[in-house]
Computed example of a mutant assay.
Amino acid sequence: MRILDTHLHLVYPDRFSYPWLENAPAINKPWPVDAYFAEAEALGIESALHMEVDVAEKDMLAETRFVATVHPRVIGAIAACRPENTDFPAFLDVLAAMPQVRGLRRILHEVPDELSQTPLFAENIRRLAVHRLSFDLCLRADQLPIGMALVDQAPDVQFILDHCGGPDVAGKGLDPWRSYIAEFARRPNVAAKISGIVAYANPDWTVDDLRPFAEHVIESFGWDRVVWGSDHPVCTKTANLTRWVEATRQIIAGASADEQAKLLHRNAEHFYRVGGH
């Protein structure tokens, strides 16, 4: 079963500045594309979408332009942006003119909650609909109500909720995360990404530690509104890429071939408009 990885981070410190990596010493090093595919191809990962790596604001466009042509198997990019800025419309026009850009993201789990709650932020997110660009939501579990409020203000935009909504896997924090996810799933313009949960787990995690989080997201959103992502190299905090792919396959082993295909590549091709969509 082939996989389209919707959440690949490539790190090139010789080209771009990543201020946040100073606080993440375990992964603060180069993560080039060839090294990723050397492991990924054997796992059935045939293609990937590059997810912006929260580079310094001055490097945002340069990162997007670079990854757009970095490797033939990187078939699109989710670009960094700042919807809180008044110059966002002009910035969006530049991104929208790049055919490799399939969506945008602004990291929200490490900024003040108020940043995404302004009328300007919502107005700028609504602009994505005209360009058929999606918006990835990266939130902590406690911020999920903030995400829902934003979604409600942009009903014509396709949102993708990253990392199963940021649950506390290590602390087995199922509640109130579970009820938030169920409520989030009632919004038809949101899909959910099965990703990131290994980085939220203890280093000695087992598949059974991850299973209730992944299964609840799939049950809530349904097989038609879930996609898969590696979150590489962030996943290497507690596992390598191989182990996360193997864990995913174990979690979905009881699903039909059609359901597995939806999660692993078909839905991603639809929501991010790649592979002929």
Rank of each mutant, 00 (worst) to 15 (best):
H109S: 10
V70C: 13
G76E: 10
V70F: 05
V94E: 15
A79V: 04
P119S: 09
T69Y: 06
L95C: 13
S116G: 12
D93M: 12
E84K: 01
L115E: 00
Q100M: 13
P83V: 09
R106V: 07
A90F: 13
F88S: 01
P99Y: 06
A80K: 02
P72M: 15
A79N: 02
P99N: 05
I107A: 13
N85C: 09
R105W: 09
I75P: 00
V70M: 06
L108T: 04
F88H: 01
R73H: 14
A97L: 11
P99S: 00
D93E: 15
A96C: 10
D113V: 01
H109N: 14
V101M: 05
S116Q: 05
L95S: 10
A90Y: 11
L92I: 05
A80E: 09
A97P: 02
L92T: 03
T118D: 07
R105E: 09
A90W: 12
H71T: 00
D87T: 09
V94T: 15
R105F: 08
L108F: 07
G103I: 04
V74R: 06
Q117H: 05
G76A: 12
E84N: 06
C81W: 11
P72R: 05
A96L: 13
A97H: 06
V70K: 04
Q117R: 12
A122R: 03
Q117N: 04
S116L: 04
R102I: 09
G103T: 02
Q117Y: 02
L92P: 00
V111S: 06
A97I: 07
D87H: 07
L104T: 03
D113G: 07
P112D: 14
M98E: 14
A97N: 11
A79M: 04
N85M: 11
E110F: 11
P112A: 11
P83F: 12
P83R: 03
A80C: 10
Q100F: 14
G103F: 06
G76C: 06
R102A: 10
P83W: 05
L108W: 02
R102L: 08
L115Y: 00
I107T: 14
